[in-house]
C-alpha cells in the first residue's frame, strides 16, 4: 500500500465556484488502475465526484481524460507508472458538464457528419456482401477506433475551430472510403475535402501519439488528402502514395 497524491479537476455548475483543482491522498495498491483510484476517491472521499466509465477494459472509450501531460484511458493506465502528484483533467475542446464529465455532443456530431455507415453502390446481393481477406486487411486498422475522444482533445486545430471534423471522424471516413463494399467513396471524399475537413489538419501528430489503441489518424488524414488530390489531378498519381 502506498499513498499517492491526486490533483483532480473539479467543477460543479450548481455550487457557484470557479473550476479548480482538488487534492486527494489515495491509498493505492499494486496493480491498481487509475479508474479504480477515481472510484476510490468517489467511494471514500467525495461521493459527488463525477466521471464517465463503463467497461473497465479499454473497449468502450468512456474514461478518456488528460492524465499527467497526456491523454489516455483511465482504465488502462496503471497508477504505479504515474509520477505523483497525478494531475487529472477532463478532455479538452469539449464543454465541461461536471468534474471530468464533458459534453460529447459536438464530437459525435462531427462523427455523424461523415455518414459513418455503409452506403452500398449497388443493389444488395442475395446473400451477404463478400469481402476478400486482402480487402478486409485494408480497413483492419481503422475499425479498432473506440471513439474515446483522446485524439480530439489533443488536437490544437480542434481548439481553434470547433467545426473541424477532427481526427476521429476523418479516420472513420477513411475506414469507409477504403471499404470494398462501400459505394460512396466520391461522396465521402467530397465531404472531407471541405473547408473543415482534411486540409485543416496541421500534421501535428498529437492524435497519433495519444491514441490508446495505437491507431494513426494523422496517417489516415494524409491518405485521404492524397486520394482527394489524385481524384482532382490524376497525373499526381506518380508523386503521391494513396
Amino acid at each position: 500500500m502506498r499513498t499517492m497524491t491526486f490533483k483532480v479537476f473539479r467543477y460543479d455548475p450548481d455550487d457557484g465556484r470557479d473550476p479548480h483543482f482538488q487534492t486527494f491522498a489515495v491509498e493505492t495498491v499494486k496493480g491498481m488502475t487509475l479508474l479504480e483510484a477515481l472510484y476510490w476517491i468517489m467511494e471514500n472521499k467525495d461521493p459527488s465526484f463525477a466521471f464517465r466509465s463503463s467497461c473497465r477494459e479499454a473497449n468502450c472509450g468512456s474514461c478518456a481524460m488528460h492524465i499527467n501531460g497526456s491523454y489516455g484511458l483511465a482504465c488502462r493506465t496503471q497508477v504505479e507508472n504515474l509520477k505523483p502528484p497525478i494531475t487529472i483533467r477532463p478532455l479538452a475542446h469539449l464543454q465541461v458538464l461536471k468534474d471530468l464529465v464533458v459534453d460529447m455532443k459536438p464530437f459525435f456530431d462531427n462523427f455523424k457528419a461523415i455518414k459513418p455507415y455503409l452506403i452500398p453502390g449497388e443493389d444488395p446481393p442475395e446473400k451477404e456482401y463478400y469481402q476478400s481477406v486482402e480487402d478486409r486487411k485494408k480497413i483492419d486498422h481503422h475499425v479498432d477506433c473506440i471513439m474515446c475522444g483522446s485524439c480530439y482533445g489533443s488536437c490544437p486545430v480542434a481548439y481553434g475551430d470547433p467545426k473541424y471534423l477532427g481526427p476521429h471522424a476523418l479516420l472513420k471516413a477513411l475506414r469507409f472510403v477504403d471499404d470494398s463494399r462501400d459505394g460512396a467513396a466520391d461522396e465521402r471524399l467530397a465531404m472531407v475535402a471541405s473547408e473543415f475537413g482534411v486540409f485543416r489538419c496541421h500534421t501535428i501528430f498529437n492524435c497519433q501519439l495519444v491514441c490508446p489503441k495505437d491507431l494513426n489518424p494523422t496517417g489516415a488524414i494524409s491518405k485521404l488528402k492524397n486520394k482527394i488530390v489524385v481524384k482532382k489531378f490524376p497525373f499526381m498519381k506518380i508523386f503521391v502514395k494513396t
Partner: peptide, 24 residues
Amino acid sequence: YVFKGTKEELKLNPNVGTFSWFLH
C-alpha cells in the same frame, strides 16, 4: 482567443509535434 488557447495547448500537449506546429 486563439493566442490564449495556443499557450494552453502547449501546456497540455508537451509533444514535439505541438512545438514544431507552434514554431511553424
